[in-house]
Design a protein around this nucleic acid. Structure first.
Lengths: 329, 329
DNA sequence: ATGAAAGCGCTAACAT
DNA sequence: ATGTTAGCGCTTTCAT
């Protein structure tokens, strides 16, 4: 920058002004400075800027497993929003380990990130509160008592849409295959199903819980249900993987989907449409979820932005394919 | 840091020494400083450090689409290696757009990243060469004439393993479903297949090219092959998505996999094992690929590290499942 | 084993 | 419309 100043015969501050698009510089000066900067291959030094302004134009994103489609798609949403704002994204994968997570937060705070997005955090409420003293934070799929902590949630209750769909098709005997035992999302989804059945005065679903959240887990869970309560005709699941496993188990017993038993999933993963049969499921706009999360953060931290904390919910919708059908007469 | 110095009654430099684990500080001083730092909630300021040392303890990763499983898994590998080294990861998704990519590089260089990993770059060789003047760079799945540019490639030729497998099973009439028309990987894979057939003195495969690289694309491509050359019994594909689509097309015509036609894929995506029938494919250790890429970079940039540029290849292997079988007598 | 001073590249505050 | 000065938090000489 000093170089440029000398070469263009202006003060160093004028160069700074040009770089920051200060309107108060004469057009001739501006273009001269830009020229010189161009030939010198100048690039502003972000750390130096950060040191004096306290702003790094960088946000941190903590997730538990980028290999998981949900997170990679969410990262995409965050990334797009981040780039639109001219910010950079510091990514940490915590591997669901709270110690790692804490180390990552320290690292990110050391980098002076302007904001932090914490997805599936394993930290305690008060630890997060404490972090929020150093940086704006948005947490995902979790509610937090501290009002300065923003949050965005997937509408997990949307599983009620799937349940209602089955009820309309005439189903009366339900099974539910659950997700991670102590998760908020798992709880909300199960409630979404249960609550609708109760409202319609139908019997409670038989619940298969504690199985691995995978195709194999769904297979085992379904077999268990079929053993315990063979009269079920409607199966609601925590997610698509379980649903696909459940369909396989049903078919392995010589029964048909949806003629004998209907199955619905949650997530609408890529493969859901190609499952056998194509899976009826709740579609989660994951990209939009990530995008909205980042937007919420930028609303607070972008220059001039000063939105007060908020709690957003991303709506989901039902996608009807061929794994659900009218119950047999 | 000044605070700590005052509180601990030492000079600011001593605090710095403690923070950098300089062995030349008395144990009593060290612990006192650590104590004070702890109670004051001190955290080193990375940008300030970067400003003076020129090292940011940060690397940049450019990819074209994090929503793609290949990249998200690769990011995971890079991320793990990065964390092991105590570095941070700045992630950019270029959306396959060279202009965006250039902007991202500028951003990253402005952040003074210590190294850059460029996956599926859309830039010209010389543009990359130029970038390599400012930062160490490792490129993925591409070779580069400039010797200071390191690279790591997937062993795309590994498709020859799949082809040999089919030959052993007695197949003589082959079809190949190709990938992105002008990609290096697509070319290498197709060659891997072609070269083996030539070596065995077998007839050339019929090649379906230009179809979308998706399940749907594979479906259409297979239909085309079946129309043009119905005697094929061995289908080799650019990747698993195409292979799965091909199997669907075969089955839709009332033929059976593998009894009538055998199909092999490439990638071993999660779903390959759950396809109908489970897909024989080339397994790509994507995580290890990302990890190795990062390792190559750190070998060059980590303090004390000074490895000279290298060109690595990540080996792949054949996974035999149920989509391939002996050709009918 | 510890300290003092200079300066990394930039911007904020106050001139002019 | 442009320039001067100070200082962000840290590390690097060079002393002591």
């Amino acid at each position: 920058m000093k170089h440029i100043a000398e070469e263009a015969r202006v003060s160093i501050k004028t160069v700074s002004r040009v770089m920051n698009n200060d309107p108060a510089v004469k057009e001739t000066t501006r273009s001269k400075v830009m020229d010189v900067a161009g030939t010198l291959g100048y690039r502003p030094n972000t750390p130096a800027r950060t040191l004096v302004t306290g702003k790094s134009k960088t946000i941190g994103l903590l997730i538990s497993d980028i290999g998981n489609y949900f997170f990679s798609e969410m990262v995409k949403g965050v990334q797009v929003a981040t780039e639109e704002e001219g910010y950079s994204l510091l990514l940490c994968d915590t591997g669901e380990n709270p110690d790692t997570e804490l180390r990552c937060v320290d690292l990110l705070l050391g980098h002076k990130v302007d904001g932090l997005i914490m997805s599936s955090s394993r930290l305690q409420d008060e630890q997060i509160s404490n972090i929020a003293n150093y940086s704006d934070v948005v947490i995902c799929n979790r509610i937090h008592p501290d009002e300065k902590v923003r949050s965005v949630c997937i509408e997990d209750e949307a599983l009620h849409l799937a349940t209602e769909h089955l009820i309309e098709l005439g189903h009366r005997h339900f099974g539910y295959i659950g997700g991670p035992v102590r998760g908020r999302a798992a709880w909300m989804r199960e409630e979404g199903c249960r609550e609708v059945l109760a409202r319609h005065g139908l019997e409670k679903p038989i619940v298969a819980a504690g199985f691995p959240v995978s195709i194999e887990g769904g297979y085992e869970a379904m077999n268990w249900i079929l053993d315990v309560k063979p009269e079920v005709t409607g199966i609601v699941t925590y997610n698509d993987m379980l649903a696909i496993g459940a369909m396989k188990a049903i078919q392995a017993r010589g029964l048909k989907v949806p003629e004998d038993i209907s199955v619905v999933g949650f997530d609408d993963i890529n493969f859901a449409a190609h499952a056998d049969p194509p899976l009826t499921t709740i579609s989660v706009p994951i990209f939009r979820f990530g995008y909205a999360t980042a937007q919420l953060l930028f609303g607070a931290i972008r220059p001039g932005g000063n939105e007060s904390p908020r709690h957003d919910v991303i709506k989901c919708h039902l996608v009807i394919r061929s794994s659900t059908g009218r119950v047999k007469a």
